[in-house]
């Protein structure tokens, strides 16, 4: 299957005198984390299927600086941002889709004041576009009647007020979409944001991802869907904590669509 992936770097496009429709910003998790790489591939499969002319930066991509900025290291963040902006502007990138809400937020909101102005969308928004414009079509399939609950990523939801795109995409699955009590603007964080992913939690009486997974599991879902590789890790760990990994899957919205299309 992996041979079928058609991924070109922007350098390759330029070498052929072509311009891609959109740049796919893979992100650090999407590039290196074993679980997140599957999401990356799901996104690529969908893009390939919909014949989207997309490029990646490949080895020219570097961390957006999000975890550094949230941790208070503004220096490191701006160094990363300036380097990335030099690369992006060098290729005259206009439109970016990210596989991660943190990259999405940083590129969209925090790069402009440093000279990086792009139209930035999250992959669930791209999926919504592709579905709306008919470039991909889904007829029920695998997920018909399955119970799915969506966990809002903080950096997609509250941080950028994107609540509907992932939900509208999932409507196409003919599944039973269920909302947790704390959802959308009131959604509870998975515990990974603000650089928490990279450190032990402070002393408390519970892990945040356990609190959140508990809430999701209370709905007896078949699938907890997510839109962020970090949420994915946190919720997957949570499901394992409750020994539910056999019955409850944690899947990215892109993976749901790719599976529904049998890609």
């Amino acid at each position: 299957m992996s041979e079928a992936l058609n991924v070109k770097t922007i350098a390759e496009y330029v070498a052929n005198g072509e311009t891609p429709e959109i740049l796919f910003w893979v992100g650090c998790a999407g590039s290196f984390d074993d679980r997140a790489k599957k999401i990356t591939k799901a996104i690529v499969k969908i893009l390939n299927h919909a014949n989207v002319k997309f490029a990646v930066l490949g080895t020219e991509e570097s961390c957006t600086g999000d975890p550094a900025k949230r941790a208070g290291n503004e220096f490191l963040f701006q160094m990363q941002a300036m380097n990335n902006i030099t690369v992006l502007n060098g290729y005259e990138v206009k439109k970016i889709v990210t596989g991660c809400p943190h990259c999405f937020n940083t590129l969209k909101n925090e790069y402009p004041s440093l000279g990086g102005n792009y139209e930035v969308i999250h992959h669930t928004q791209l999926l919504q576009d592709l579905l709306n414009s008919g470039r991909i079509k889904i007829e029920g399939g695998d997920f018909k009647g399955k119970k799915i609950t969506f966990h809002d990523p903080c950096y997609l939801g509250r941080a950028n007020d994107v609540y509907e795109a992932p939900r509208e995409v999932m409507i196409n699955l003919d599944a039973e979409l269920m909302e947790m009590k704390r959802s959308k603007a009131n959604g509870l964080c998975c515990g990974a944001g603000g650089a928490q992913m990279f450190k032990e939690a402070e002393k408390g009486n519970k892990e945040i991802n356990i609190e959140r997974t508990e809430e999701a599991l209370a709905l007896n879902p078949d699938i907890i869907s997510v839109g962020c590789p970090f949420c994915n890790t946190m919720m997957t760990d949570g499901v394992k904590h409750f020994n539910k990994e056999q019955t409850v899957k944690v899947l990215d919205v892109a993976e749901l669509i790719a599976q529904a299309k049998d890609l």
């Binding site: 991924v7 770097t9 893979v26 650090c28 999407g30 590039s31 290196f32 790489k37 990356t40 591939k41 990646v56 490949g58 080895t59 991509e61 570097s62 961390c63 600086g65 975890p67 550094a68 941790a71 290291n73 490191l76 160094m79 990363q80 650089a195 992913m197 990279f198 450190k199 032990e200």
Partner: peptide, 26 residues
């Protein structure tokens, strides 16, 4: 741990110890 994360970003452009040249290996 956060200092380690900073060092990784500084050196390899990712919060973990992976080399930037491996970024497209997936």
């Amino acid at each position: 741990e956060l200092n380690m994360m900073f060092t990784n970003i500084e050196n390899n452009g990712a919060p973990w110890q992976f080399s930037q040249s491996d970024r497209l290996n997936w």
